[in-house]
């Protein structure tokens, strides 16, 4: 677990009153399977939320709904003032403001690292190529792998690939970042480098929603932990209280399993 995350600089981690994401009475079904049940979440700007729960609890589906990789059938999701409906314009708007990092990185294997980073800015934001490349190099510096810019994803280690994926999202200058189990597919020695990148992102004041089982990360960075089970929010609290004083039995069971006692 990321014990090194003790020296987190919380000076810029301020939560504003502005609402970034508002989810109201949201329900989703896969066929007849009720996968998300009556979800209500309000995320303010600057919040760092960790979502956890047993597998199949719907946590990945939840954040995938936030940029409409999954469709919800009931309720409302408003991201940065834009409601997600079947309106393609709204979907485009939301997607270009919300960055997402996947469990399996999903870098484009046919493009170099630099091309991976500049693809969306050039085609979506209409940024001149040179400028896009400069931005890309800036973020590659930030994730500490500028020297890999001209290699292909297949030539990088898993941890490096995931950091590239984070940089790729950042190049779109998103206001919100979603992380879908970003460290689950990584070897243990690579988890720390990715978590460090995410921590430095939090230190810069990014609004983040992170599905993860890295409890060290949750304690160090999150201002709220949401525990989900059976497609519903079972408990939420600030991290210290959540870990030290869990309320519901399901949370206690889950924590005892994940903390390995």
């Amino acid at each position: 677990m990321a014990e090194a995350a003790t020296a987190v600089n919380r000076s810029k981690m301020t939560v504003s009153d502005e609402v970034a994401i508002q989810i109201t009475d949201m329900n989703k079904w896969y066929g007849t399977f009720h996968v998300l049940r009556d979800i209500n979440i309000t995320v303010n700007k600057g919040e760092r939320i960790v979502v956890c729960g047993p597998s199949g609890s719907g946590k990945s589906t939840l954040i995938r709904c936030i940029n409409r990789l999954e469709e919800h059938q009931q309720g409302q999701i408003i991201v940065d003032g834009t409601e997600l409906t079947s309106d393609l314009k709204n979907i485009d708007k939301v997607r270009s403001e919300v960055g997402m990092v996947f469990q399996h990185f999903n870098l484009f294997p046919h493009l170099t690292i630099l091309e991976n980073l500049t693809l969306a800015p050039i085609w979506v934001r209409k940024v001149p190529k040179k400028e896009a490349e400069e931005t890309a190099m800036y973020f590659l510096q930030k994730v500490k792998i500028p020297e890999q810019a001209h290699k292909y994803p297949g030539q990088l280690s898993g941890g490096q690939q995931q950091r590239v994926a984070i940089a790729r999202s950042l190049c779109m200058k998103p206001r919100i970042m979603l992380f879908d189990e970003p460290t689950s597919a990584l070897d243990p020695e690579m988890i720390k480098e990715v978590l460090d990148t995410m921590i430095s992102l939090a230190e810069d004041g990014m609004t983040m929603i992170c599905v993860t089982h890295e409890m060290g990360f949750a304690q160090a960075v999150a201002n709220r932990v949401i525990f989900m089970d059976q497609g519903q929010i079972v408990e939420q609290n600030e991290p210290r209280e959540f870990f030290n004083n869990p309320q519901s039995d399901r949370t206690k069971l889950f924590l005892s399993q994940i903390l390995g006692h």
């Binding site: 996947f102 046919h110 085609w123 979506v124």
Partner: peptide, 30 residues
Amino acid sequence: ISRGQTEAALALGLQPGLATRLVVLPQALR
């Protein structure tokens, strides 16, 4: 071409047509 590739392209804000042209097609053609 795994679904992840399309999803990543969409999540970056590329419209479906562009995602197909810039991400899926070049890989599928190989």
